[in-house]
Structure formats: structure tokens, C-alpha cells
Design a protein around this nucleic acid. Structure first.
Lengths: 233, 233
DNA sequence: AGGTATTGTGTGGTCCAACCACAGCCTAGT
DNA sequence: ACTAGGCTGTGGTTGGACCACACAATACCT
């Protein structure tokens, strides 16, 4: 079984990255040059670049000048989001699995926190105020997402951030579909706002365990309200 | 900004999946037919299929008969593994980040376990015996990987399984590179074997917290020995 | 009639040669 | 000195050709 042509191109590029001949921000050779050098067609080179592009490793743009060409980037979320979204769509992963994983990530993140400088919570508090200021469920949800991402970011693990972001993105459409069917949005929004403030307060007190516990209840309760997971019992 | 041709193909296929016109195991139309139907070139269709293939959604094979053609599959690991591996290579993610995430996953998985039927630990115990039977660090590591995956699998969350598997795969080359440089492999292997058995025993007792704690120490200690993360203090 | 080569057919895999759209650069003309 | 136009090289797209493959149907020989 000979490797497929586009695979040899990927291997070459990956090899250049591992050996540091290619670093973040560098530009690749042109597609035609690379094809010629590796003895494959431009089509195969393009397939390889397309793959690396969906993996968040390369970004390519037409035109000329500094912004053009294929460039090495580093966006781990691209592949994670796309993959999770599609696998939820084919029912290979369930929304419940994703929510459980999200609870795991957030609980972990909050337990990592300790003695933070006070001002690091300022962005989160601004998002709290923004959530107070809106009555639109969709806008509320978007700010809610930013809020949770902001808190997880405090743990400082970029991989966890990327996974967290991808998890939310993969089930966003399900959450938004469920929103209009909620019984009493005003009441639910009020509860979510209160829970958010309690979580921020717990972080401010440096109580990681309590924060994690609050977050778990907060996430699971809304998921039940939205019909995304079964009622307990 | 019009969507690129291959993106419209992906959207069409994703739409077919969401509307259940395409389910797991189904075969796609031929590339030529799909290209004609969507009014794009076969090249663009192929790029789309290649992307979905790296996302673990589609598998395609040449030839004829039941095994040929493009088929909807569900392998979440493909994209996760490839993406993580490359992002570690470009230093957009560090080995330490990956190890921390792995500790998070395993700790969570073990805390989920409760009152298991006794025989579910049989496969894990067999892997323990297999690890006893080898002196080769590389083979040991492979069985070690299977062992940890087997334990995490008991938690029953396929998404967590996929992430766990991908995390290990993404740093495997670093672990294997470090193996020959270990001071005293025999002593380390003996300690790993003992720790493994302690973990299995703790699971058998239904003590999730203790299992998680043992696993965390086990993982971090070896990572330090292998020079993958800094010494404490 | 049974088994065995052979051909046929449709699949994905690869390649080529052209052309398009784009964006910066450079030059000619004012 | 400035502006408008063309130049050049980038990725994006297309059509058509051919290959390797794997199965299915057929023809063939025994």
C-alpha cells in the first residue's frame, strides 16, 4: 500500500514543521513549486493544504503581497469544532456526552484556580453586566458562552480552552433551537444571572471546590430545562 | 465573499446528514454524480470529501462492490489525533498542556465509576499481566496506553474516550523518544506495574476519589521521570 | 455442468493544462 | 508629485484524460 500522493505532501510539510524549517507565521512555497519539488501534481498539493487548513495548521489566501499565500497558523479549534459538530450530527456523539464533557472541563478549570489577582475577573464581570442588559435569549446565550469561556481561560491551559470552545460550538444549534421552547424565559434568565454571580463570587473567594460544584449544578440544570438531557430519576 | 466551491459541497453533505437523508453506513453518490448535481467540478467535490475524510466522517475506497465508494463512518479520533499532533509540533500546544488535560480526563473518568460488575475489570487485568511479561519499553508503553484507555472506557463517554485516545497519540512520539534516556528502566517499570495494580484495586473497591488521586500521581511522576514536564518546586 | 480465465464496468486516485479572481507592485502618463 | 493603468504571482476552479482497483458478468475450456 503506497501512501497516497496528498499524504506524502502532508508528511513533507509536517516534517518541515517538526524540524523547525517551518515555524508559526512562515509562508509555504507556492503550490506549483511544492508540487514540482515533490514530484506530484498541483491537485495533490492542494488536497494536502486543504486538509492542513481544516486542521487549523495552515491558512491560505489568494492575491499577492504579505497577506497572500499559504501561511502556518495555529488554531486548534477549527478541527475540533468541525469534527464535533459533524459527529453530533451523525449521532456518533450525543448532546449528553458533550454536556458531560463540558461539566468535566469547567469543574477542572475552577479547581485549578487559586489566589487570583482581583482584576482578572473584571472581563467576566463586564459580561455579567452585559447579560443583565439583554432580554433576547439568543444574545444572552452568546454572552453566556463568552462568560464561561472567559472563566475557563483563567486556568491557563490552551488545549482545554480549545476543547471547551469546540464543545460549546458543537451543540450551539441545539441550544438555540431549544431556547424558544423554554417555559418561562424571564424566570430562567433570572436564575442563570444569579448563578453566574454566585460562581464569580466563589472564584473571588478562592474556593475552587465550591465553584466547581456550583458550575456543575448550573450547567446541568439548564440542560435539563432545555430538554437537552433527561430529567433526573 | 461567496463560499468556496468545496464548502458548498460540504454544506450539502452536512445538510443531508442533519436531515437524516444520509445516515451512518450509507454510501454517498459517486463523485461525478455529486459534482454534476451541485454544479461544481469533480475536483471541488474531491476536496470536500477529503476534508470530511480527515474529520472522520467519511471513508472512501476505490474499486467496485460493497466495500467501494464513499461511505459515512463515525471516527471522532481521526481529526482529534491529527490536529493535536500537528499543534504540538508547531508548539501551539505544549506537551505539558496535553498531560494536564489527560490527568483531568482520567481523574474525571475514575470518579464516574461506581459499583461495577466484577468482570468488567478482566480486560484491564489481562493487560496488567501482559505488561508484566515484557521488558521492552516500547511494547510496555503500547500496552500501558491500552490499559489506561480501557479504564477510561469504563466511564462510558465516547467523546471522552476519543479525546483521551487522541491525547495519548499526540504525544506518543515524545514519550517514545524519552524512553531510552530513562535512568533505570527496570526500576521505573516495576513502579509503574505496582501503581497500575493499585489503581485497579482502588477501582474494584469503588473508591473513585482515591483512584483519581492515584492516577494523577502515577501520570505526573512518569512525565517528570521522562522529562516531559518540569520537576516540582 | 462445473470450474476457471477473461472481459466489462464503475469506483476513487492522479495528473495536466488552462483560465479566473484577487491583491499588491510597478510603471507610465498627467 | 500623484494617480491610473497594467504587470505579476498567488490561490481557486474547471474539464478532460488516464490509471489502479475490485467486483460482476461472461465466455471458455474441461
Amino acid at each position: 500500500m503506497t501512501a497516497q500522493a496528498y499524504e506524502t505532501v502532508i508528511e513533507e510539510i509536517e516534517s518541515m514543521i517538526r524540524s523547525k524549517r517551518l515555524k508559526l507565521g512562515d509562508r509555504l512555497e507556492g503550490e506549483r513549486v511544492l508540487a514540482d519539488r515533490l514530484g506530484v501534481s498541483r491537485t495533490s498539493v492542494r488536497e494536502a493544504i486543504r486538509v492542513l487548513s481544516t486542521l487549523g495548521i495552515i491558512r491560505s489566501a489568494p492575491g499577492s503581497g504579505p497577506s497572500a499565500g499559504a501561511q502556518v497558523i495555529a488554531d486548534p479549534e477549527i478541527a475540533l469544532s468541525a469534527s464535533l459538530r459533524l459527529h453530533v450530527a451523525v449521532d456518533s456523539l450525543s448532546v449528553g456526552d458533550v454536556i458531560d464533557a463540558r461539566v468535566m472541563l469547567e469543574s477542572w478549570a475552577y479547581r485549578q484556580l487559586e489566589q487570583l489577582p482581583d482584576d482578572v475577573l473584571a472581563p467576566a464581570r463586564e459580561l455579567l453586566d452585559a447579560m443583565d442588559a439583554t432580554d433576547d435569549p439568543v444574545e444572552f446565550h452568546h454572552i453566556d458562552t463568552q462568560f464561561h469561556l472567559e472563566l475557563v481561560r483563567l486556568a491557563g491551559n490552551p488545549l482545554v480552552n480549545a476543547i471547551m470552545s469546540s464543545l460549546r460550538a458543537s451543540i450551539e444549534s441545539y441550544v438555540l433551537d431549544a431556547a424558544p421552547h423554554l417555559e418561562d424565559w424571564q424566570a430562567i434568565a433570572a436564575r442563570l444571572r444569579a448563578e453566574h454571580r454566585a460562581i464569580v463570587a466563589a472564584i473571588g473567594e478562592g474556593d475552587g471546590d465550591r465553584t466547581a460544584s456550583l458550575a456543575e449544578g448550573h450547567i446541568l440544570a439548564f440542560a435539563r430545562d432545555a430538554g437537552l438531557i433527561a430529567q433526573p430519576g
